[in-house]
Amino acid sequence: MKTERGDEVIVVGSGVIGLTTAVVLAESGRRVRVWTREAAERTTSAVAGALWWPYRIEPEALARDWALQSLSVYEELAARPEESGVRTVEGVMGESRLDEATWVAARLPGLRTATAEEYAGTGMWARLPLLDMPVHLRWLRERFLRAGGVFEVRPVTDLAEAAAPVVVNCTGLGARELVPDPAVRPVRGQLVIVENPGVTTWLVSTDADAGTTTYLFPQPDRLILGGTTDEDDWSLTPDPAAATEIVERCAALRPEIAGARVLGHRVGLRPVRGAVRLEREPLPDGRVLVHNYGHGGAGVTVAWGCAREAAALASR
């Protein structure tokens, strides 16, 4: 049996990975504190388009398993969309084929090839979880607090500051300096938020020649347009030229978007790494450090699977 002290865990980071991990740990009976330099609604996760689908994440086999575990949770949460921020929404994944999705076909009833009327190219029609991230992050935090967790806004300049028997590092891009791990780097994503002119389905379209991915995600009170994938770009300032291009690309796919009123601009830095780091590191002083970072733009997609594995590593 663990001692009371041995049950203590500090989770560093409050994006979707950190909060989900904290929820799993707290609901397993651990005494959990989340340390974060900023409130969850100001993290990169709050800016995410947040469609469930593995995006630029390795290792592929593990990522698919984590994603399927997360899919099960989101399907349950979609029964309470106003509370959880999770809905299941239909749309087209452009430049994708059914034979590339055999790993998930059994879990997605209705997955099929998109018709020519639905998409002018090769694509898959799917019904997937789509998350309203400000709502979902708030829901995660409230669920964590109900489980007895403690949330502390405090800067962390060294993981050694977290004096608990188990520390879980969910710092995303911050791991580049805190670990330090130079393999973690930013891939900048810019979004334009507009009034929704009546779009009810999501769309992701990739132009390999131009090197662009264009997407539009309908939320209850707005339409999210994207995006950019700017490698090693640390700027959090919206680029007006990029914003104009995003709107033009989205309007080329859905003409009704052309006149939509712009509500705002968002920029986030995806914490990309060659492969997710999810592992247990015993420290010389007997404490345990569990790493759970490097999820790139797929943090939402794999959050619950990774959280469960991190919690298991923390309990060994």
Rank of each mutant, 00 (worst) to 15 (best):
T228C: 11
E256Q: 14
A105R: 15
P182F: 08
E75Q: 14
V192N: 02
A101I: 06
T171D: 02
L131V: 15
G294S: 05
D239H: 08
A242V: 13
A40C: 03
T244D: 12
L313R: 05
G174S: 06
E177H: 12
D65Y: 04
E117M: 12
P165H: 03
L216G: 01
W125L: 13
E60D: 13
A160S: 13
R107M: 06
L225M: 14
R33E: 15
P180V: 06
E90P: 00
D7T: 05
L223A: 06
L19T: 03
P182A: 13
L203R: 15
L223E: 12
E95W: 07
Y215Q: 00
L236R: 15
L25A: 14
V153F: 12
A162I: 07
V23Y: 12
D7H: 11
V12H: 14
V192D: 02
E195R: 12
E161H: 09
L130Y: 08
A298P: 03
V290G: 02
R42W: 15
P129G: 06
R107I: 00
D239G: 00
L203M: 15
R280D: 03
G172I: 05
G15A: 07
P129H: 11
R185G: 07
L137T: 03
R154Q: 03
D132P: 00
D181R: 09
E100S: 09
L128T: 14
E83H: 09
L263R: 10
V24K: 11
W304K: 12
G110K: 08
R107L: 04
G305T: 02
S84M: 06
E309G: 04
T301P: 05
G85N: 04
V9Q: 05
L223C: 06
A105P: 03
V104Q: 08
P81M: 14
A101G: 02
D65T: 08
G286R: 07
L131H: 07
V288K: 10
R266S: 00
A258R: 15
R316H: 07
V86K: 03
P240D: 08
P218W: 11
S70Y: 07
E83V: 06
R5L: 14
E4N: 10
R185D: 08
A163W: 11
R31E: 04
R37S: 13
D207P: 00
V192R: 05
A312G: 15
S70H: 03
A26M: 15
L130Q: 13
G149V: 09
L203N: 14
V276H: 03
L216W: 13
